[in-house]
């Protein structure tokens, strides 16, 4: 049964990489069931994350957000700050797609804080970039410029000309 769970997970990932997002969802849902049977919270967290990603490419952003929130909840329970940061970043982008810029900003700010804590300058740059866009969408141009300038400073520091 444990091996079956792993097989479903690998199958789901393969379907995802092939662009078969509905089949990826079906496989990851099976993987999730087995993870819960075993009380395997790490596997459950991975399944939620993979499901969230698949729903993004299916255009079902509300579903994606729900799975990313579960990913975030488990990341906090498992005290995994890197995954917590990744979840917040995913939620920020998902809420941008949903045009809920206030929620997007909330999650991107959370991502920013963790990225700074983890000395992740690339993550910090991404957060600032995202925040600049979200604040622009809200018409808060002072904050938008603030974060856009931070993004520029970090990009120069990292040598990312793009």
């Amino acid at each position: 049964r444990a091996a079956q769970g792993r097989a479903y997970g690998n199958l789901g990932n393969t379907h995802y990489l092939l662009g078969n997002f509905r089949k990826a969802v079906m496989s990851h849902e099976q993987r999730l069931l087995i993870a819960r049977e075993f009380g395997d919270r790490s596997a459950e967290r991975r399944a939620y994350s993979n499901l969230g990603n698949a729903f993004i490419f299916l255009g079902e952003f509300e579903m994606a957000a729900e799975y990313y929130k579960r990913t975030l909840q488990l990341a906090r329970q498992l005290k995994d700050r890197a995954v917590e940061a990744q979840s917040c970043y995913s939620l920020g982008n998902t809420y941008t797609l949903l045009q809920d810029y206030e929620k997007a900003i909330d999650y991107h700010l959370k991502h920013l804080v963790i990225a700074q804590e983890l000395n992740d300058r690339v993550g910090e740059g991404r957060a600032c970039w995202s925040l600049g866009n979200a604040y622009t969408a809200l018409g808060n141009h002072d904050q938008a410029v603030h974060f856009a300038e931070k993004h520029l400073d970090i990009s120069r520091e990292l040598g990312d000309r793009n």
């Binding site: 769970g5 792993r6 997970g9 690998n10 990932n13 995802y16 990489l17 596997a43 991975r46 399944a47 994350s49 993979n50 990603n53 993004i56 490419f57 255009g59 952003f61 970043y89 995913s90 982008n93 941008t96 797609l97 045009q99 991404r126 970039w129 995202s130 600049g132 866009n133």
Partner: peptide, 26 residues
């Protein structure tokens, strides 16, 4: 169409580009 317009937010597009290869492995 409306959703596609929002994919043109460059930071979101960059995230989605990364997402195409993002799988949590067993």
């Amino acid at each position: 169409v409306q959703r596609m317009n929002f994919i043109q937010v460059d930071s979101v597009q960059r995230w989605m580009d990364d997402l195409t290869l993002m799988t949590e492995c067993e």
